Amino acid sequence: MWARLLCLCFIASLLTGCGFHLRGNLPLSQFPAIYLQSDAHSELAALLNQRFQQNDVELLSSYQSNRPSLVLQQDTLERRTLSLFANGQVAEYELIYKVEYQIQLPDQEPQKYQFELFRDYQDDPNQALAKAQELELLLKELRQQAANRIIRQLARLG
């Protein structure tokens, strides 16, 4: 019993000593405030706002040259046909979520980034309502992964 407890304490001290953090729980203490520029109704920007609030980062209402800025230039969703039913209807799509953004740190040149996230989506015209809800869930998941990826990039830069 004591040996297990001692082993568990040793492993916990090793993990905390090496700087391990749970994913999605990144400290952004090097950015006390940031300016976020995006489209007015961007769902990705809303998710980033939430992530910044969770990390106690103040969102600035206007650009300031002595503060970092994040510009969401574009986020698009494309569909590519992967397979067809025998009658010619689309059976499976590949969803491609593309994000382009720019980070500018004080006294530095802006750095541009882009990435793509992929998901397969099976379509069934006989279950249109269920498939529409499934598509919405997939899009929400893609946006959450994109927001997490942008936050991780910011944490690396700091």
Rank of each mutant, 00 (worst) to 15 (best):
85 F>G: 06
113 Y>K: 01
70 L>A: 07
155 A>E: 11
149 R>D: 11
11 I>K: 15
112 K>D: 12
34 I>H: 10
137 L>A: 05
60 L>P: 01
44 L>W: 03
104 Q>I: 12
86 A>L: 07
70 L>M: 10
102 Q>N: 11
61 S>F: 05
79 R>L: 12
129 L>K: 13
133 Q>N: 13
105 L>D: 05
54 Q>P: 04
88 G>L: 11
90 V>N: 08
58 E>F: 15
12 A>W: 15
45 A>F: 02
130 A>R: 01
52 F>G: 14
137 L>N: 06
3 A>T: 13
126 N>L: 08
135 L>E: 04
108 Q>L: 00
27 P>A: 10
16 T>N: 00
138 L>T: 00
77 L>C: 09
107 D>M: 06
43 E>S: 08
55 N>I: 09
144 Q>H: 13
57 V>Q: 05
110 P>T: 15
54 Q>I: 14
105 L>G: 11
45 A>W: 00
136 E>D: 10
57 V>R: 04
157 L>W: 09
148 N>C: 10
46 A>P: 06
107 D>V: 05
155 A>F: 02
144 Q>F: 14
22 L>C: 10
125 P>F: 15
92 E>P: 02
50 Q>V: 05
32 P>S: 05
89 Q>F: 08
78 E>T: 14
80 R>G: 11
156 R>H: 09
7 C>K: 05
85 F>P: 06
